[in-house]
C-alpha cells in the first residue's frame, strides 16, 4: 500500500521537470493567446473583452486562405510521407551498404539549414537558374520560365525536400520494429510482396505515418518564410497573414484568432488523416 503511494509520488516527481517545461514554454503562451483572441484593439492598444468579432472577421475574410493553406499543407504532408516511406522502406529492406548509404545521406541533409535549402532551390529554379539556362541554351524555350520559381509548385518542392529527412527517421524506426519472421510468415501463408506490405508492414506503421504527416502538416501550415521567398505573388499562406497581424498591423487579437482558427483546422485535418490511415490499414 505505502509502496504504491511512494511509487505514484515518484512518477509525479519524475514527470515534474518535463511538465514544467511544457507548461511554461507551450501551454501558458497558448492559453494567453486564447484569452487575447477575444480582446479588441483601439488605437493600437489591446483592450480586454469577450467578443467574437475577431473570429467573425477571420471566417469572413480568411476562409479562402485557411482552406488554401490546409490544402497545400495536406498535399505537402502527404507527398512527403509517401516519399519518406519509400526511402525508409528501401533503407530497411535492402539493408547492407546501400541501406547504410541512404541512411547516412538522410542524416547528412539534416545538417543543411532551412534557408540554405531555399536558396539552393532558388538557384535551381530561378530565372538564371540551372533548369532555365539549360532550357534556353537548348533552345527549347525563348524566355526563361518565371513560373518555375514563384509558384505553389516551388513551395511544394522546397518544403518536401526540407521535410523529407524528418519524416524518414520515424518511419525507419517503425519499420525496424517489424518482426522479419512475420514477413516470411505472411509470404508463407500466400501473400505476394505487395500483400506483405499491405497486411504485415503498413498496419504497424500507422502511428509513424500519422506522426510524419502531422509533423509535415504543422511545419508547413506554420511556415511563412518559404511562401515569401519562393511562392511569388499568388502564394500567400496563413503564416504570412498571421505574421503581418503580429508585425506591421499590430493587431495581436486578430492574429491570435487567426492562429487559433488555423490550429483548429490543422487538428481536424490531422485527426481525419489519422482516422483514415487507421481505417484503411487496419487488420481485416
Amino acid at each position: 500500500m505505502t509502496g504504491r503511494i511512494r511509487a505514484s509520488w515518484r512518477s509525479v516527481a519524475l514527470m515534474g521537470p518535463a511538465a514544467a517545461v511544457l507548461g511554461f514554454l507551450f501551454l501558458l503562451p497558448l492559453v494567453w493567446f486564447l484569452v487575447v483572441s477575444f480582446y479588441r484593439v483601439q488605437l493600437f492598444q489591446m483592450i480586454p473583452d469577450a467578443s467574437l468579432a475577431n473570429y467573425t472577421k477571420v471566417l469572413a475574410d480568411y476562409a479562402g486562405p485557411i482552406a488554401f493553406t490546409a490544402a497545400i499543407a495536406a498535399a505537402i504532408a502527404a507527398i512527403t510521407t509517401v516519399l519518406a516511406f519509400v526511402v525508409a522502406h528501401m533503407i530497411w529492406a535492402r539493408g547492407g551498404a546501400f541501406g547504410a548509404f541512404l541512411l547516412g545521406a538522410t542524416l547528412l541533409t539534416l545538417f543543411g539549414g532551412y534557408l540554405v535549402k531555399i536558396y539552393a532551390w532558388r538557384t535551381i529554379l530561378g530565372r538564371e537558374g540551372v533548369i532555365n539556362s539549360t532550357l534556353v541554351g537548348l533552345g527549347l524555350v525563348k524566355q526563361p520560365i518565371d513560373a518555375l520559381l514563384y509558384s505553389p509548385t516551388a513551395v511544394v518542392l522546397v518544403l518536401v525536400s526540407y521535410l523529407l529527412p524528418f519524416a524518414i527517421l520515424p518511419l525507419y524506426g517503425a519499420l525496424r520494429a517489424v518482426d522479419p519472421v512475420s514477413i516470411e510468415a505472411a509470404r508463407d501463408l500466400g501473400a505476394t510482396p505487395a500483400g506483405v506490405l499491405r497486411d504485415a508492414v503498413l498496419p504497424l506503421c500507422v502511428p509513424a505515418l500519422a506522426t510524419s504527416f502531422a509533423l509535415c502538416f504543422l511545419l508547413t501550415a506554420g511556415d511563412f518564410v518559404t511562401p515569401r521567398l519562393v511562392g511569388g505573388t499568388q502564394t500567400f499562406m496563413m503564416g504570412n497573414f498571421i505574421e503581418s497581424q503580429f508585425g506591421l498591423r499590430m493587431n495581436v487579437p486578430l492574429g491570435a484568432a487567426m492562429t487559433f482558427t488555423t490550429l483548429v483546422t490543422s487538428v481536424c485535418v490531422i485527426g481525419a488523416a489519422w482516422a483514415g490511415l487507421r481505417h484503411f490499414l487496419r487488420a481485416k
Partner: peptide, 30 residues
C-alpha cells in the same frame, strides 16, 4: 506463397496487430 508447403517458424512470427483468430484465418482470407 506459391508452394504447397507451410512453415512454423522458430520465432513464431505472429502478426502483432491481429488477434489470435485473425492470425489463424489470415492464409484462408488471402
Amino acid at each position: 506463397e506459391k508452394r504447397p508447403t507451410n512453415m512454423v517458424f522458430q520465432g513464431y512470427g505472429l502478426f502483432p496487430h491481429m488477434s489470435v483468430r485473425q492470425n489463424i484465418g489470415y492464409g484462408l482470407r488471402l
